[in-house]
Amino acid sequence: MARNKITLEQYIGFRKKKEFGEKRKINVGKIVSFTFLLLFCIVWLSPFIIMFFGSLRGYSDTMLYPKELFYPHSGYTLENYEMLLLGKLPEGIGQVNTVQDYKIGTWFMNSCFSAIGGTLLYLLVASMAAYAFTFIDFKYRNVLFAIIVASMVIPGAATSVGNQSMVYSMGLNRSLLALIIPGLGGVYGMYLIKTFFESIPKDLIESAKMDGYSNFKIFYKIVLPLGKTVLFVQGLFGFMGGWNDLIWPQMLYGAKDTDLWTLQVGMAYIINNSKTSNLIGSALAGGVICLLPVLVMYIIAQDKIIEGMSSSGIKG
């Protein structure tokens, strides 16, 4: 049995402290902030709960017993999910044409492809570029990097319309690749990775070169393992960005290309439909499906995400 052991002196000290009447200070600030934060969190997290329970409420309950939010009148049901995933309409709803357009499985996969594939590819390309900018000495290196960094001032809106036509000209406008490839030129992630690479001691790279390592070997044996935290954090943000993006997929694919839609575009469509046909339950179910991957990821890697966010603020 692992037991905490202390020295007798420490115990005597504790007794003495008690005798001096010095109690643990009750920190008013802590209590106030705890209460306030608790209340705040309850209020702020209630939408999640409403969404979750709302998605488990059947169509007829939504219409007839709208006040029974958390305990639906006729019990929990998965009919909203069935409607979305299987196209199965609940009884009594009548014919709703739009439901047949819902291809939530396809959209989900498209989103996964866009978010995961895009992130991985970007990490590879950006970290290679960051490596070149940090460890390989070539002409105009600093000038080139300065130009790239300076371009961060130009907002994405300036290039998006041009990009849209560019992608069309390249014949990618009917391809999922268009979700991924234009993002590869992103500056911010590369800049952050480079900043991290700069903190790797140059001696390490030089001594590896002396040992006969090639640049590729140094890249994946030394630099990538050392930078795995920053790459991981960058990957997480990349994934979330890709998953949550609405504007770019909307620009790429029109109303008819439903097979190419991402979950966000599809969800926007579902919400629009639900507002008119009282199918809010299905929208909520879609919201849950849409939220689930990011939420799971956040719960797993919450500390890393917060850490990454904080350090980006500290380094500025």
Partner: peptide
Amino acid sequence: LNSTDIEFVNNL
């Protein structure tokens, strides 16, 4: 420390 079930590593 208020409980009596504490083991001491030394005994004065």
